[in-house]
């Protein structure tokens, strides 16, 4: 018996931020616990599949690349998905979107994304700080879960299971389901009807006045969009549970697409709900990117 984990990641460098994420705490909303979890769930699943392990194993979500880690303990396989970055181990270029072997003591580095915003770095065995309420996810809204990673941290890794799919690529390669999507400009988000249609005199067609752009204030709580204000009645609705992708319209008329770290309930009227299949793409948008909310039926 030993208290020392068999392996650990030493954080040597961080880009804009580096957070541990898994599938979050999706079933505790009634207690006021945000869902949290990986913003790009397809990338989480794809990277873990490349390592032959459970799709929900905790990963590091690196915003704007820049993540540099040293492996402590025996050699392990790593995999990347999500935003496309240059990957290197001990200074040697490696493939993005594949399983790569890192030797004991090896240093893996992610460059700045050439496309997308958030790169998923999965490690054989999972990145395993102490779980809170069944998840290792950092919830940036409530503060639940581990603190955001900082340079100098030594993060435990779990025991390795399964065998990596050596030579396999994330589905479809850099433009596929494990990457930042088949990017089109503007990125189209399907907008389903929501519970507050009567609050918007122009209905969901109010968003049809051309693409909007991603605000620099966007974060894991919500994708905030700039553009012409959306007309709405004044006041608030009775507080209600907020599903992922709900498009809240505060009094200033600027819509917010609610993401993983959204509050559990809220009182701003909801214009509609973005299709869950389009939410991974939201994780990969950068300030200034063009977005079109496109109303679809039911």
């Amino acid at each position: 018996m030993t208290d020392r984990p068999a392996g650990a990641l030493e954080i040597l460098g961080i880009g804009a931020s580096a957070l541990v994420q898994d599938l979050g705490r999706p079933s505790l909303g009634h207690l006021g616990v945000p869902a949290s979890g990986a913003l790009d769930v397809a990338a989480l699943r794809a990277a873990n599949r490349l390592l032959g392990q459970g799709e929900g194993a905790p990963i590091v979500e690196a915003l704007l690349g820049g993540l540099t880690v040293r492996l402590h303990g025996p050699g392990r396989w790593f995999a990347t998905a999500g935003a496309v970055v240059a990957v290197s181990t001990d200074g040697r270029p490696r493939a993005w979107g594949e399983a790569v072997r890192v030797p004991s003591g090896g240093v893996l580095r992610l460059g700045r994304p050439v496309r997308g915003a958030r790169t998923t770095l999965a490690v054989q065995g999972g990145v395993r700080p102490a779980a809170v309420l069944g998840s290792c996810s950092t919830d940036t809204l409530s503060g639940l879960g581990p603190a955001p990673l900082r340079v100098g941290d030594l993060v435990p890794l779990g025991p390795t299971t399964g065998a990596p799919a050596v030579g396999a690529l994330v589905p479809g390669g850099p433009g596929g389901a494990g990457g930042p999507g088949g990017r089109v400009d503007p990125v189209r988000l399907r907008l389903h009807p929501g519970p507050h249609g009567s609050w918007f005199p122009e209905g969901r067609s109010a968003v049809a006045g051309g693409p909007r752009t991603v605000s620099a204030t966007s974060d894991r709580v919500g994708l905030r969009l700039e553009g012409p204000p959306i007309p709405r009645r004044p006041g608030e609705v009775p507080s209600l549970g907020l599903p992922p992708g709900a498009v809240q319209v505060p009094p200033d008329g600027r819509p917010v697409v609610l993401l993983a770290d959204r509050p559990t309930t809220g009182g701003y009227p909801i214009l509609g709900v973005v299709d869950p299949r389009d939410l991974d793409a939201c994780a990969q948008l950068l300030p200034g990117d063009a977005v079109e909310l496109r109303p679809v039926r039911g």
Partner: peptide, 25 residues
Amino acid sequence: LRTRLPLLGVVPGAESVLVQAAHGS
């Protein structure tokens, strides 16, 4: 609903109940 739909998120509000899938449909 929470006992009948243990795999889903069930969130009461002031005058409503949200039923949500964690990811997907």
